[in-house]
Write a protein that binds this DNA or RNA. Sequence first.
DNA 1: ATTCTCGGACGATCAAGTGC
DNA 2: CACTTGATCGTCCGAGAATG
Length: 216
Amino acid sequence: MSSNVNDRTYHTTATASPPVPSPDGLLMFPIDWPRDSEASPKPTTRSKRRQVKNACTLCQKSCKKCDEARPCLRCVRYGVPERCVNSQRKERKKGTKRGPYRKRDVRDQDDLAGLPRSPDEPQMPPPPPPPCHFPTAPPVQPVFYTHPSLYPKPGEQAPSHSIVCPVSVPAQVDMGVPYIATWGWGYHAYPPHYQYPYKGYNDHLGVVPTQSHMNY
DNA sequence: ATTCTCGGACGATCAAGTGC
DNA sequence: CACTTGATCGTCCGAGAATG
Ligand SMILES: [Zn+2]
Ligand SMILES: [Zn+2]
């Protein structure tokens, strides 16, 4: 046991702080995710991780935190609010036999753990693969822009301007949206009909270009 | 150093089982 | 019927790999 995973102390005190060097692009910025309503004064008490009921497809694909709003904060931050849609949830299986239940006070006999509930109940032999991470990303146009209204019309000159973004954006963007990061407070915008100008862009899993992809 | 991938812990949901 | 149990499904943390 190298790092006790039960020891997770979610950053309950991470509110209104400067950008932190986190590998997570979005969370590098002081997005004040409401961890738990009653944030205990002591960071020693682990607060429960709050999950949204339904992440958007892009956050889901990136295995990153979403929020209830549509468009979600991530999509807004990355300038693709129109692509922020709820992911589909599949219906739960019905008709599965479960066998008799145990009572609360008789559990924790520690040898009961792992034993089948019923002698004739095979209880889930093959665990399916984890649902996280789409096998393949849906085809996305490798383009990026700040807002659809900013698209030049097809045939126009390639934009050499840069559009100021009111919020700074992270260096790492792993959500499945086309986006170009900038290091500072502005970023360039390109209309969808332009070719992706960067090399090394990995469209697989919807990865988007980052600082290292920029070479112009 | 920075970016990206993804294993798996954790949380939410809800049908099956239980008791009245 | 309401309540409890626990399997299932989904979210997303964060370590390690990959890349420049
Ligand atoms: Zn989202
Ligand atoms: Zn979204």
